[in-house]
Every structure is written in structure tokens, then in C-alpha cells.
Design a protein around this nucleic acid. Sequence first.
DNA 1: TACAAATAGTTAGTGTGACAAATATATGAA
DNA 2: TTCATATATTTGTCACACTAACTATTTGTA
Lengths: 149, 149
Amino acid sequence: MTQELFAKYSFLLDRTARKVKQYAQQQFKSGEFDVTVDQWLVLKNLSENELLSQTELANLVFKDHPTLTRIIDLLCKKGYVERITHPQDRRSFQLHLTESGVAKVTALKPKVLEIREKAWENLNETDFEEFKRILNTIYQNLDGQTIEE
Amino acid sequence: MTQELFAKYSFLLDRTARKVKQYAQQQFKSGEFDVTVDQWLVLKNLSENELLSQTELANLVFKDHPTLTRIIDLLCKKGYVERITHPQDRRSFQLHLTESGVAKVTALKPKVLEIREKAWENLNETDFEEFKRILNTIYQNLDGQTIEE
DNA sequence: TACAAATAGTTAGTGTGACAAATATATGAA
DNA sequence: TTCATATATTTGTCACACTAACTATTTGTA
């Protein structure tokens, strides 16, 4: 296999990832979800893990701290999340879904799953397992850390 | 396959694509390439196709027009690209690699290929074919879809 | 106790991505 | 010819990614 192909696959990977995000974002918008795709990822993780710190959440969703700070800012402004000062550590916050945030997650969850499903038409479960394996291999090659799943 | 399983791919895909880009960008930076990963993609395509219009180039690299305008602006500022008014159509430009741009592509090409290769360690040709097939299927599943339902 | 080092989070700067709207020019049909 | 429409590119706005630098606290160690 020639080196040129490696570069081509990097291009395909980037192009597909952007398309997946763009498609979901369009559906979010037309459905008036009132959150972006990335904001949704954060909300969903908060609904599954209460009282996370921003650092813990950043590790869960694989976003860096400045990005997470701004996403949390926006979610607070929209009233879905609250920052609660950590009782023992004044540098840190415990993130808390508001009632409105919980309701948002409940309302959107099935709709998001339906949107995500669209990408897998004409593909089966074996494809999915292969895809996951290859993506994780690539990630590990460049990260040097193990990924469990 | 359950819907929850389906939903994981978008996270893994996004995470991996970002890692691939981030790794390459770090290498570009430490090697003092003087261009970003996206700027490189544009330069490389210009070196393979002279006198493209911005619209033609946008279709080649799958970037939208405003994004491309700004990347071209930066490459012009760096002296690697020139906009030449189209002789028959004053709305349009013909994009031209300067001498400096040609030299840059020549110098960087082998280095970029080497960087790209790193992502594909521990994967074989069958994996590449599968990966390409799945990425392209996903892309097509989501491409050209209307927002309304 | 003192103080350097580590940690949590924010701010700033640059680049990119998506989308909408604006500008300038070209084209086609009445 | 003239005017509506199409095309090429730019501008504006918001969101996200990454880096670096910064503030405020906490912790480790002498």
C-alpha cells in the first residue's frame, strides 16, 4: 500500500466526521432542539453522572478545558446546567442539571437516537464492530493510551 | 442492534478525526511547516490542478466557500498562492501557486506522508478497504438529505 | 510553618466549520 | 434591450478546537 493512500484515508475520515456532525446539527436545528450537537453530548453525560467536576466531564467527553468551559457557559445561560461550588475545594465546581436540563434530556434522547441511526443504513452489526475497532486502533496509534470500551 | 449502540459511532468518529488532525497539526508545528493541516490540503490540491477557481477547489476539498475564502486569504498573505482575475469572468479567480508555494509543496509532501502513515499502524489492507467502504456508505447515507421530514 | 509545585478553571488568540446575507458580475428570456 | 435569475466570492456571526498564559486554590515537602 502506498503512502498516498494513507493521506487519502485521513481526508475521508475528516470529511465523514464533518458530514455526520453537520447532518445531526441540521436535524437539531429543524427540530428546534435549542442545543448544538456538542452541547447535547455534554448534557447527556451530565444526566448519566451527577456532580461531575469540569475536569472529570472533560475526560468523559474528550474535550479540552477551554472548550468545555464555553459549552458549560452556554448551557448555564440556557438554564440547563448550574455550577455549584465544591464544598471541599473552592477551585472546583460540581456540575448540576437543572429541572429544565433533565426535561431537555428526556425529551431529546429518543429523537437523537433516531437521527444517529440514519448513518447506518445499508450497514450491519459486523460493520459497526469493525468500524469501532479501526477507529479505536487509529486513536491509540496517535495517543499512546489504551482505550477500553 | 439497539439504537444506543448506533449512537456511539458518532462520538468515536468525531474523537478519532479530531485526534488525527491534532496529531498532524502538532507534527506540522514542531517541524515548522508554516501551514496548518487544512492549508496543506488546499496547497496540495492546487499543486495537482493549476488555475482552479475557488468554487472548483471548494468542491475538490469538500470545504464550503466562506471557509475556502479565508484559507486562501491566509495562503496569499504567506505568499504561497495568488488570485488571478479570470480573463473571461470578472466574478471569478484563477488560483495560482507561486514559486514559493511550489517549493513548499515539494518540501513538505514526503514529510506529510510520513506523518499520515503513523495513524495506520496495526491495520492491514483489508481494514483499509472496510474502513473506506463504511466511511463512504455513511457519507452517502447522510448526503443530500433534506432537513424537512 | 513556609513555599514551591500541582491542580481547577478561565481568558485570549488563531484557525476552522456552518449558515445566512450581501456584492458584483454574467446569462437568459421576453 | 431590459430585467429577473443564476453564479462567484465575500462578509458577518456563532460555535468549537487547540495552544498558551493567567488566576485562584490546594497539596506536598522541607
